[in-house]
Design a protein around this nucleic acid. Structure first.
Length: 296
DNA sequence: CCACGATCCTGCTAGC
DNA sequence: TGCTAGCAGGATCGTG
């Protein structure tokens, strides 16, 4: 599923090819639910003749800045992919939206699950309003340790669902939360405001490190994610816990455990990420012995 | 504030 | 072998 590194990779790809192109209109759209702001014909009319100025990212949104202060926005949710193709190139599977340019290329939005969404805002203010509740960008200077500390303060909920909340901090999804918690050796069900300063520091560093590494590796492709040219990422080879159930922990060899937290598949090492007081787990855990294997 | 469940979707797969 | 129920999950919304 596209999280910050996957969206960032796509944005960098699109940024190399889209600016300067002029939109002809919308040549194909077969899934009305995808279009959040305008019906297909109106959207096509509003886009026709506009030029692409910039491509940017905010959280997991792809922002395409157009002439006349128009802003075309994509959210890929779980399985959405954006490709720039020559118009005559073979169709991409699961394509539900095509926007041709005046140079015989086109932007295609392909999405197996059809959860992806497209928005057109007619002024910067409308875009800013729409994005106004989002938290800080973890890879920018605005995400300081002080900001992170204040966000966690007084939070009684479990760490993992909190880190997935885009109002607190943007860009993390299931994969990178699992990874960051393993790196910082914190249990996903730790109550957020019980972290020591040292633990919070480690988590803060882990979030930035995990995301930075994934960006450098052009994202994680587990099943559906492809970059702007249709290529897979490389970060899946570096995952420490995500989708590694029953495989040995890279730190202590204990088999990785999978549980559900906040209705999300959650992977962690039961030894490196000790269960907090008061949380009852249905697998045996020893905090002292290394070779403690949970039931299969 | 927090937990939980439902919703939106379809390809895949575990289990019969 | 063939079928099917259930799972996967980002964000939002409703309920308690």
């Amino acid at each position: 599923m596209p999280e910050l590194p996957e969206v960032e990779t796509t944005v960098r790809d699109l940024r190399r090819s889209l600016p300067g192109k002029t939109i002809i209109g919308v040549s194909f759209t077969d899934w009305p639910n995808m279009l959040q702001t305008h019906p297909p014909d109106v959207l096509g009319q509003l886009l026709a003749g506009e030029q692409v100025l910039e491509v940017n990212r905010r959280a997991k949104y792809v922002l395409i800045m157009l002439s006349n202060d128009k802003h075309l926005v994509f959210h890929r949710k779980m399985t959405g992919n954006l490709f720039v193709r020559q118009s005559e190139a073979e169709a991409d599977k699961y394509t539900h939206f095509v926007m041709p340019f005046n140079d015989n290329t086109e932007l295609r939005f392909a999405d197996l699950r059809k959860f992806g969404r497209i928005y057109l805002f007619l002024a910067r203010d409308e875009l800013d309003q729409y994005l106004s509740k989002l938290g800080p960008e973890p890879l920018l200077d605005e995400f300081t340790e002080e900001v992170f500390t204040s966000q966690l303060k007084g939070r009684k909920g479990a760490l993992k669902p909190l880190l997935l909340n885009q109002n607190l901090l943007v860009g993390l999804g299931n994969i990178y939360v699992n990874e960051a918690l393993w790196v910082s050796q914190l249990h996903p069900q730790r109550q957020a405001d019980t972290l020591t300063a040292e633990e919070r520091h480690e988590l803060y560093l882990a979030i930035r490190q995990v995301l930075t590494t994934a960006v450098e590796n052009r994202g994680t492709t587990l099943s559906d994610y492809l970059d702007g040219e249709g290529q897979k990422g490389r970060n899946q080879e570096l995952l420490k816990v995500h989708e590694r159930e029953n495989q040995p922990c890279y730190r202590c060899d204990t088999p990785i455990v999978k549980i559900n937290v906040g209705q999300r598949g959650t992977y962690f090492c039961p030894v490196c990420q000790p269960v907090p007081e008061g949380v009852i787990m249905n697998y045996p855990v020893s905090r002292n012995r290394k070779n403690n294997h949970p039931n299969p």
